[in-house]
Amino acid sequence: MRRAVTLLSTLVVGTTLLAAPAAFAPARAQNPITQDGQNPMGAKPTADSVNEEFLFKNADKITGRVSIPDKKSANLIQPQGREYQSFRERYLPWIGAAFILGMIAALGAFFLWRGRILTDDTQESGRKILRFNAFERFTHWMTAVCFIILSLSGLNYIFGKRLLMPLIGPEAFGALAQWAKYSHVYLAWPFMFGVAMMFVVWIKDNIPNRIDWAWIKAGGGFIGKKHPHAARFNAGQKGVFWMVAGFGAAMGVTGLMMLFPFALLDINGMQVMQVIHALIGITFIAGILAHIYIGTLGMKGAYDAMGSGKVDLAWARAHHDLWVEKEQAKTASGPQLGGRHPAPAE
């Protein structure tokens, strides 16, 4: 009897062991991937699943679905954004450094070669003539102050996290960058207003003419000691005027496109605007560096024109002889010379 029970138990266990795999077969059939990841059917679920490449064959960007009113938030991947990011993070810092450092190096080399441009003393030395009245100086300085802040805060967008953050730490840089952003956005308005005012005030003196061509051919007085003829503004100054007017307008328009996102442009358009804004901004900074150099260190007596508004008559005669003659011709007695209350240049 005991033997029969043992035999029966052995049969039951053996049958169970043999039948168990068959019982799990349906479950295995539903999940044909074996333990080592190989599919016995030859399928490759991971490789065959929907991927970026497949989705981009159907549309130029990958979008999802959202229930909020802002349908733009459904945009998940936009390949053009990668090109923009590549420009922004890889090329722009090098372009910016090359332009600005290149200009500083060029100005340094020019200063070493030419030195400070001086004016010979004449019998007119010591007498003053009003070159820019108070309103002109106000307009210039308002635009200039805004430009300097906009330049520094703009460069912070490109170089801040690379150069400044390692020096002052992320917390200080975060606060600084936030205030730089505020100043960039809000000082843009007086800057645009200043550019518009300068354009209106000075355009009549900045129309190119034959005198400018002669001034350029003569090297603008940078080469040699003789100064070519010039009216109120020489060709170089006219170049600065038109650069400020053109670049200022371009910076204003592209900046407004970013200041009011999606008002007129989509995300692609705004990225293009940012590229233009950055490239023009860098060129603008480099150009104004040259303007600052020649207005201060590069030429003796030039700063007085925007500092006090009055310049030495000998300086004015040397650099803007046609303008001096015109101003003196306005008044037979030449009241601009010497007196305590010089008449305005306009």
Partner: peptide, 8 residues
């Protein structure tokens, strides 16, 4: 200059 800064 000062008036310009204040105006800005």
């Amino acid at each position: 200059f000062i008036v310009a800064v204040v105006a800005a």
